[in-house]
Amino acid sequence: MLRAVVTQVGEAFTVHVSTVPPTTPPAQETSTSESETVHDANTTVNSDGVVAKDGEIGHTTKELAAPGPNPIVPEVKEVIWGAGAFIVFALIMRYLAFPKLKKGMDARYSGIRSDHEQADATRLAAQSDVAEYQAQVASAKADAAAHLDQARQELEAKRTARIATANAAIAEMRAAATAENDSARAAVQSQIQGAVAEVSSSAITLAIGKAPDAAVVSRVVDEVMSAGAAR
């Protein structure tokens, strides 16, 4: 029968394992050390595998490699190292790294933004240039159209003038021809009248034996001829 007594000195644990007669109930010591292990996890360790082998009697001391408190309980050295590391890191970030990085980012972003604005301005200028050019083109086109109109009008005027003169000439010639025609017709008519009057008067003379009044004959011939012409 083995009896184990665990004692703690600082970080080191000493385990005394000894044989005891089986008659004595040895539970007292071990149970107290266990309750320490369970409740006061800060300072005690589970004694892992330190129970001596059968027959190995006496005094064994072993430094344990991995035992530790319950993992729920923080270890002071880890808290200190973690806290120190984080605080240093946070201060470096706050006062050195982040402001510089952020300044660079802001500078670049504002640069990009101003570039954008510049590009916008350039584009606007180009657009106004284009508008101006288009206006010029339009005015040139209008000029050309005006010139064209003018030339066309001049041509038109010339053409109408020529046509008018030609028409006038034609009308003149036609009037002359008409007048000639009329005079010829009048001459022929007077000749015919004279002849008809002569023939009629001679016929009447033959018929009644007496020469009719020349004035009456000419009046009657006139009437008949104009009636015939009117018919």
Binding site: G82, A85, A97, L101, G104, A107, R108
Partner: peptide
């Protein structure tokens, strides 16, 4: 654990300090 914490702080600072020292334009 302490080693990892210290390394994390060192690596983190190194990344951001290096990044800050690069040309930002």
């Amino acid at each position: 654990i302490g080693l990892i914490a210290v390394l994390a702080a060192v690596i983190g600072s190194a990344i951001f300090l290096l990044a800050g020292s690069k040309d930002h334009t």
